[in-house]
């Protein structure tokens, strides 16, 4: 373990996992937190509640396809949605650097509100702090969210089973590329926009098939490669992914080739993956395709018994290799 925090400790990959395990979990010691899901599933007097929190430090604040306001709503809504919860209430905290343009703040607040309307969640409590110049970079936002979980819904890595189909809701890497394209220093022109969207609208279509769904996650920071590794670590099974089956925009693929990026580790903000009983996969897939957020949904792999706790890719030419968690810092402050 490093003596000081590096940017990589925030990339959602191996260093983040190491930090959580060695610094936070031993102090907080809570069985719900220890499950390391995207949301805490709680039971309060027979009511099942999902609760989550997320902070947003994206740079730049405005990017193709969204801004920090929309992202702050979608990020938290999505963490609730992939737990099978119906997102209901949001809190929001703004940390603003002095001299930040009010016009930009208003723009972000309006975008935040629009996204909340779309996601059908209410913003019920908020906080504002201003810090001196240099104490934060322009604007950071924290949101927390509460959702309710209907009876009979129980998603989690503990339910993943051999043979499960892995369904991905659409193209990967759009958010990562959109942010990269607007970054100072490496800006380039592309038509790729962030996929930032509230996934509860898609999950709503999926819930009638909840009995077949074993686990659901959203591959944000750290990308698809990292989230698949989290699933195998937590479930003890393996996963085989087919390189041929991975949905990827031609432009994203080209930019990745040029810049030496691996789309498996690029961030997404409007995609989910589901581990689904093979008998229910087809039905669920056609339900997902009816929603614009799931129109490109497809099966990208399967849960296997061997090798345990490993993600394997069957390559296009017929070889096989492992997919590891994100290690190096690919790109900081993407969300």
């Amino acid at each position: 373990m490093e003596d000081y925090i590096l940017l990589g400790h925030g990339n959602g990959g191996k260093l983040t996992a190491e930090l959580i395990e060695t610094c936070f979990l031993p102090c907080f010691k809570d069985p719900v937190l220890n499950t390391l899901q995207d949301q805490a599933l709680l039971e309060i007097e027979n009511h099942r509640i999902a609760f989550t929190t997320d902070s947003f430090v994206v740079d730049p604040l405005f990017f193709p396809g969204g801004d920090i306001g929309k992202l702050a709503v979608c990020g938290t809504v999505n963490d609730l949605a992939v737990g099978g919860a119906v997102p209901r209430f949001l809190s929001v905290g703004f940390i603003i650097e002095e001299n930040f343009p009010l016009e930009d703040l208003k723009k972000i607040a309006r975008s935040f509100s629009r996204a909340a309307d779309t996601a059908q969640v209410r913003i019920v409590t908020a906080d504002t702090k201003v810090v001196e110049k240099g104490a934060c970079d322009k604007l950071f936002i924290n949101t927390s969210g509460i959702g309710t979980i209907n009876e009979g819904i129980d998603f989690g890595s503990h339910k993943v089973a051999e043979g499960d189909a892995i369904i991905l809701s659409g193209d990967i890497g759009d958010h990562g590329i959109a942010i990269l394209s607007s970054r100072k220093g490496i800006a380039f022109e592309t038509s790729v926009t962030s996929d930032c969207a509230p996934l509860n609208l898609l999950v709503h279509e999926m819930l009638p098939y909840a009995a077949s769904i074993h686990a659901m996650r959203d591959p944000t920071r750290g990308g698809l490669g990292t989230i698949l590794n989290e699933i195998v670590q937590q479930s003890g099974f393996g996963i085989t992914v087919y390189e041929d089956a991975l949905p990827l925009k031609e432009e994203v693929r080209g930019i990745c080739e040029l810049l030496g990026l691996d789309p498996l580790y690029l961030a997404n903000e409007g995609k989910l993956i589901a581990c689904v009983h093979p008998d229910g996969a087809k039905e669920l897939l056609s339900a997902m395709k009816k929603n614009p957020l799931g129109k490109d949904a497809c099966i990208i792999g399967h849960v296997t018994k061997e090798p345990p706790k490993k993600v394997v890719m069957e390559t296009r030419v017929g070889g096989s290799r492992f997919i590891d968690m994100l290690v190096a810092e690919d790109l900081p402050r993407i969300c």
Partner: peptide, 9 residues
């Protein structure tokens, strides 16, 4: 070579 799984074949 590693990424394509060439060695494995």
């Amino acid at each position: 070579i590693s990424k394509s799984g060439l060695r494995s074949l």
